[in-house]
Design a protein around this nucleic acid. Structure first.
Lengths: 192, 192
DNA sequence: ATAACCCGTTCACTTAAGTTAAGAAATACC
DNA sequence: GGTATTTCTTAACTTAAGTGAACGGGTTAT
């Protein structure tokens, strides 16, 4: 499981054994049960996550309804926006499945960054890459219909459709659960 | 105009006079006429932008129609995703108004970053901040209707509604120009 | 075993966005 | 200054999403 973390980091920088050991000494690895809540609306946090196994989601509570806006699965890194803005969180984060994550906090990162400046470089590259990817995702969302978004998701993240409840997928696609259900049966009809 | 750039940088790191002069020697400042195209679909680029004055937009050409997905105005920094992914651009970038931008390229940035490591820190902070902000924007987009998005934009970026053509705003809101026009008149009716 | 609850689907109805077309208003061009 | 082009609005019609309600299957709890 540790190797998954190092494989991920290797995409951005090369680590020495010393640096790997320094990371391992931080005790980053955590197991979490399905349904565990990592962050609640209104809370402050300075923790960042990296998913080794399982799936976590972010969701807003609006008019008593959950609105799921993002899923993070194996090899996804994620820093909640409230950590960056230093404001109370607007959303919840919870585990959809039993999961194994690394959880780091801003202090750890500051320490590692000062000890090993190349981590700074990794963080920059990673943020830039995630920003660019998210921009593309956002653009695709804006320029397509709910049905196109669903078909697009089917291509790009077919696992999500299997492992995530429909009503959570619906808000991820920007629609209501009933509409997703209808849209799916419409697609099935077309195939026949 | 140079001070605008330094004011922006000052939000992230403190610069010495030497560092400021090093930046100025790079000849970053450019004036562009309304309608100038900065990047075309299919092109490679390694240029990043910072808007000192004016407005630029990104747009896709889909089925012969322009789909505008983003606007960048005064004090906005922007690196196209194709610069990060090193692939041909999926979209166009052009000036909506006569504009003054700084245009830097990856080589310049590498040089500055190696001369002044604190620039690396600035880039990381900036990317993280933009990523967090964009996440919030995306979430708001997903969880609201076209009408709510329009009203939200009216609050957050009222200038855009004045300076940007309606049909470009429409695709930015994820709808057709006719729908935006109708939606606006619907809102006016409600007020009376 | 039964009840309570959650989830996904379906249906009928409402509302709003997409589409096509036409015309008015504003802007750009010669 | 007048013409051409683009932009915005309006309208009628189509299509799809939102809403509220009901049903069945499945799980959980008691």
């Amino acid at each position: 499981m540790q190797n998954k973390l190092f494989d991920f980091i290797a995409k951005y920088i090369a680590l020495t054994e010393d640096e790997k050991n320094a990371l391992l000494s931080l005790n980053l690895f955590h197991s979490l049960k399905k349904g565990s809540v990592l962050l609640k609306e209104g809370q402050y946090s300075n923790e960042s996550f990296f998913v080794l196994k399982g799936c976590i989601r972010t969701y807003y509570m609006i008019d008593g309804e959950e609105k799921t806006t993002a899923f993070y699965t194996e090899m996804d890194a994620f820093t909640p926006s409230c950590v960056i803005s230093k404001t109370p969180s607007d959303y919840f984060i919870s585990c959809i499945e039993d999961s194994i994550l690394t959880i780091s906090n801003a202090d750890m990162e500051a320490e590692v960054n000062s000890k090993f400046p190349k981590f700074e470089l990794m963080c920059r590259k990673l943020s830039e890459e995630l920003l660019a990817k998210q921009r593309i995702d956002f653009d695709e969302f804006k320029t397509s219909s709910p049905e196109e978004r669903y078909l697009n998701l089917l291509q790009k993240r077919p696992d999500l459709i299997q492992r995530v409840p429909q009503h959570q997928l619906a808000s991820y696609l920007g629609i209501k659960p009933q509409s997703l259900s209808r849209l799916r049966s419409r697609i099935l009809e077309k195939k026949n």
